[in-house]
């Protein structure tokens, strides 16, 4: 048995252990679950040290050519502050590190996020309802009516009665259609993952059985 076949068998057995949960909770599932959690934790610790801490911090502080960049001590101290959360007496120090992360993140992202996800979307809703072909006009009307009525549904300072209530009803209908589309996509995603596993079991794993039994193939 070579390493490739061993890998395929391990993958197949763990896959079957995990799918056994669909029948009911059992020791095989628990084993696979604990194996995954343990391996993931170990993997990410090493990966973070090797691919994040070493290149982005350690090698900046101690460059290959020699020397010592003292400025990189500062992020190191802030990183230690994050770990202060596990010692109640000095847990407050972690807030300094968190404050820096949140401040930098908010400063860099706030305007860009608003521009991309609010302003550009509002601009995209300001459409001509009279130019273009019949289908374009119809699409634009659906889009504008959908956005406006959807917003009306989430306006709670006025009772949803009369014309306002009818607009809110159109809004919730549009929202339901959108949720239905999202649900359809979600089903497709989950089935795709199942297809991936089934293709692995049927096309990669099953053909190895006759080979192991010396039946050719």
């Amino acid at each position: 048995m070579n390493w490739e076949i061993l890998g395929i068998w391990l993958g197949a057995l763990v896959t079957l252990c995990l799918y056994s949960f669909l029948y009911r909770d059992n020791p095989f599932y628990k084993f696979a679950e604990h194996l995954f959690v343990g391996m993931s934790a170990g993997y990410w610790v090493i990966y973070t040290i090797e691919n994040v801490l070493k290149p982005n911090w350690w090698q900046q502080m101690f460059p290959e050519g020699g020397g010592f960049n003292w400025v990189w001590v500062i992020p190191g101290i802030f990183a230690l502050f994050m770990l202060a959360r596990i010692i109640p007496k000095i847990a407050g120090l972690s807030r300094m590190a968190l404050g820096m992360i949140i401040g930098a993140g908010a400063g860099l992202n706030m305007v860009a996020f608003f521009q991309t996800n609010a302003m550009a979307q509002v601009k995209g809703t300001i459409l001509s309802l009279s130019s273009g072909g019949v289908w374009d006009i119809f699409s634009n009307i659906v889009l504008v009516v959908g956005v406006v009525s959807g917003l009306v549904y989430f306006f709670f300072s006025k009772a949803h009665t009369g014309i306002f209530g009818k607009a809110a009803n159109v809004g919730i209908t549009i929202l339901m259609i959108a949720f239905g589309a999202s649900f359809g996509y979600t089903i497709m995603a989950r089935i795709s993952l199942l297809i991936g596993r089934c293709q692995f079991l049927l096309e990669d794993w099953l053909p190895t059985i006759p080979r192991l039994l010396g039946l050719g193939g």
Partner: peptide, 8 residues
């Protein structure tokens, strides 16, 4: 990518 590379 849309936010930073595209819009910015």
């Amino acid at each position: 990518w849309v936010m930073m590379a595209g819009d910015r």
